[in-house]
């Protein structure tokens, strides 16, 4: 069965590109969110298999949001996707429970590789 993904990114442009890549690779995009509030609202009764999470969001720090997401749905795998490549940020995200990190700008292959590498 195809795995479901929620995309959290404030940029419609980024969401559309990720959407295109994910559908192309056989994933189901179950929801998109442009802000932390919207992401948390979407998680009510709908836990996707994977969440692609941007770090810089208009209403919240992605790292704080990451913590809330993992508390709310511990079975969802969160992949952080950002152009902030500071090792400190990456290791903090991984410490908090992120399963992978995708550096922006990404290629479709890089996205696919990160998602396929997620262990069940």
């Amino acid at each position: 069965m195809s795995r479901t993904v929620m995309i959290v990114d404030d940029s419609l442009f980024m969401r559309k590109i990720l959407h295109g890549i994910l559908v192309d690779k056989g994933y189901i995009v179950s929801a998109e969110a442009a802000s932390g509030i919207e992401a948390m609202r979407n998680l009510h009764g709908n836990h996707p298999d994977i969440i692609l999470l941007d770090i810089v969001l208009p209403d919240s720090n992605g790292l704080d949001l990451l913590e809330s997401i993992i508390t709310t749905c511990p079975n969802t795998k969160v992949v952080v996707c950002s152009s902030i490549a500071q090792p400190l940020v990456i290791s903090k995200a991984l410490d908090l429970g992120a399963r992978a990190f995708i550096q922006k700008p990404f290629t479709p292959e890089k996205v696919a590789e990160a998602l396929e590498g997620l262990e069940d």
């Binding site: 404030d10 940029s11 810089v56 922006k104």
Partner: peptide, 12 residues
């Protein structure tokens, strides 16, 4: 965030 998004989008 606006500068950051501009950069990220342009890079993509």
């Amino acid at each position: 965030r606006h500068a950051h998004s501009m950069k990220g989008m342009a890079a993509t």
